[in-house]
Amino acid sequence: MGKRYFCDYCDRSFQDNLHNRKKHLNGVQHLRAKRVWYDLFRDAAAILQEEQTKKPCRKFLQTGQCDFGSNCRFSHMTEQDLEKLSAQVQGEKRLKELQREGADIPPGTIEDWLDKRAQRLSTAQSNRTGGSIRAPSWFLFGNGFESL
């Protein structure tokens, strides 16, 4: 049967040869799926800027549906959606400005949350045990830490 090519954007596979791959990669379905995929990772400011330049889609506003979907050249966002997006962009700008000024704002990563949680648990446990901190045996031996 030969090698098969799997397209992650379109979630389909086909026989891999030059003609088939070229035909697929230049096809409308693939280009639309690729655009939708990359649109998921755009920042709010870029989305807001693009949506503000578009006129509202009459059919989407009247019926709630549009035959063109994500390929429509008109905006499918309501005024409330645009206001929420604008508020989100302003919040992100303020946060960046505060971080540039040197304000002590935690980045909000999972590691930071885990550290804070561990500190909270250790203080709560020390309050219950009268000051001595004792880690459970599963914590000492089950996570790869040789000594604490």
Score class of each variant (00 low, 15 high):
residue 1 M to I: 12
residue 1 M to Q: 02
residue 4 R to Y: 05
residue 6 F to N: 04
residue 6 F to T: 10
residue 7 C to L: 06
residue 8 D to Y: 12
residue 9 Y to V: 08
residue 10 C to F: 05
residue 11 D to R: 06
residue 12 R to F: 03
residue 13 S to I: 00
residue 13 S to Y: 02
residue 17 N to W: 01
residue 18 L to K: 11
residue 19 H to I: 15
residue 20 N to D: 00
residue 22 K to V: 01
residue 23 K to D: 11
residue 27 G to R: 04
residue 27 G to I: 03
residue 28 V to S: 15
residue 28 V to H: 09
residue 28 V to Y: 04
residue 28 V to F: 07
residue 29 Q to I: 10
residue 30 H to K: 13
residue 32 R to Y: 07
residue 34 K to Q: 10
residue 35 R to L: 12
residue 36 V to L: 07
residue 36 V to F: 07
residue 39 D to I: 00
residue 42 R to E: 10
residue 43 D to A: 05
residue 45 A to L: 10
residue 46 A to C: 03
residue 46 A to Y: 05
residue 48 L to N: 01
residue 48 L to I: 04
residue 49 Q to T: 11
residue 50 E to H: 11
residue 58 R to C: 07
residue 59 K to P: 00
residue 64 G to A: 11
residue 64 G to K: 04
residue 68 F to C: 14
residue 68 F to S: 13
residue 68 F to Y: 14
residue 70 S to I: 09
residue 72 C to W: 08
residue 74 F to D: 09
residue 77 M to N: 08
residue 79 E to Y: 12
residue 81 D to L: 05
residue 81 D to V: 01
residue 84 K to V: 06
residue 85 L to S: 02
residue 88 Q to Y: 05
residue 89 V to K: 01
residue 94 R to E: 12
residue 97 E to C: 05
residue 97 E to Q: 15
residue 98 L to Q: 15
residue 99 Q to G: 00
residue 99 Q to C: 03
residue 100 R to H: 08
residue 100 R to P: 08
residue 104 D to M: 10
residue 106 P to N: 06
residue 107 P to H: 12
residue 109 T to E: 03
residue 109 T to P: 02
residue 110 I to W: 02
residue 111 E to T: 06
residue 115 D to Y: 09
residue 116 K to W: 09
residue 116 K to H: 10
residue 118 A to V: 09
residue 122 S to P: 01
residue 122 S to A: 14
residue 122 S to W: 00
residue 124 A to F: 05
residue 128 R to W: 04
residue 131 G to D: 01
residue 132 S to E: 02
residue 136 P to N: 13
residue 137 S to Q: 15
residue 138 W to G: 00
residue 139 F to R: 04
residue 139 F to N: 03
residue 141 F to E: 12
residue 141 F to Q: 15
residue 146 E to F: 00
residue 146 E to I: 08
